[in-house]
């Protein structure tokens, strides 16, 4: 495993830790999109079907289980926890799941590396992950006061995507058979979605003012 990949996994993990911290200790999910969290739970469930088939490494298995467990528990907290769910900004989180899920499913049926159940689900999870942040970005735009933890959560998620691209570039030059167009194209699209957010995040940090996205 190269340093970009490890750093990518760690920022991904950090984003989950930041979100759980907010939910668990502050008992708030204000500014967090339930739609995005539900989409992530679907993404991990579809992609990690290989847990039952492949064993890659202990690291790999543990990380997959952590992402599965954390994504489902975040959804549970936001929907069922009696204090947390009251802080959910339902009125502004109006993005419809099927707008993203259906096109991704269709695309996965058409463009995949092999037409088998697991490969189609893998491609579906890659496409869906690329756009799953959309409801969250829309909610951020509608949120007047973006708190620090929410901003950091999205920032770490974006950093994870940038680091994964560096990891692919590194692997492309060091591993002869490492070519996965599906994940590369989807990954680049996914990273570009964060570009706007990154700009405003860095500006707010530089000028030491509160993060706010223009409507």
């Amino acid at each position: 495993m190269n340093v970009f990949r490890l750093a990518g996994d760690m920022t991904h993990l950090l984003s989950v830790v930041v979100l759980l911290l907010k939910i668990h200790t502050i008992k708030s999910c204000a500014g967090i999109s339930l739609k995005t969290q539900e989409l992530y739970a679907v993404v991990f469930a579809a992609r990690y079907l290989d847990l039952f088939v492949h064993f890659v490494s202990l690291y790999n298995t543990v990380m997959k289980l952590v992402f599965l467990a954390s994504s489902f528990s975040i959804v549970w907290y936001m929907k069922r926890h009696k204090i947390v769910r009251r802080t959910y900004d339902k009125d502004h989180d109006t993005f419809r799941h099927y707008v993203l899920v259906l096109p991704c499913l269709l695309l996965a049926l058409l463009i995949n590396e092999k037409f088998t159940f697991r490969e189609v689900m893998w491609a579906f999870s890659i496409y869906l992950e690329a756009v799953a942040i959309f409801p969250q970005l829309v909610l951020l735009q509608r949120t007047r006061n973006i708190d620090n933890l929410t901003g950091q959560y999205v920032f770490f998620l974006g950093a994870y995507r940038v680091l994964y691209i560096l990891n692919w570039i590194y692997r492309y030059f060091t591993e002869p058979h490492f070519v996965h167009w599906i994940s590369w194209v989807a990954g680049i699209v996914q990273t570009l979605l964060y570009a706007d957010f990154f700009y405003y995040y860095i500006m707010s940090w530089k000028n030491n003012v509160k993060l706010e996205l223009p409507a």
Partner: peptide, 10 residues
């Protein structure tokens, strides 16, 4: 093989 390099990522 190619399948393994894909599934080792998260």
């Amino acid at each position: 093989d190619s399948e393994d390099t894909k599934h080792d990522e998260l």
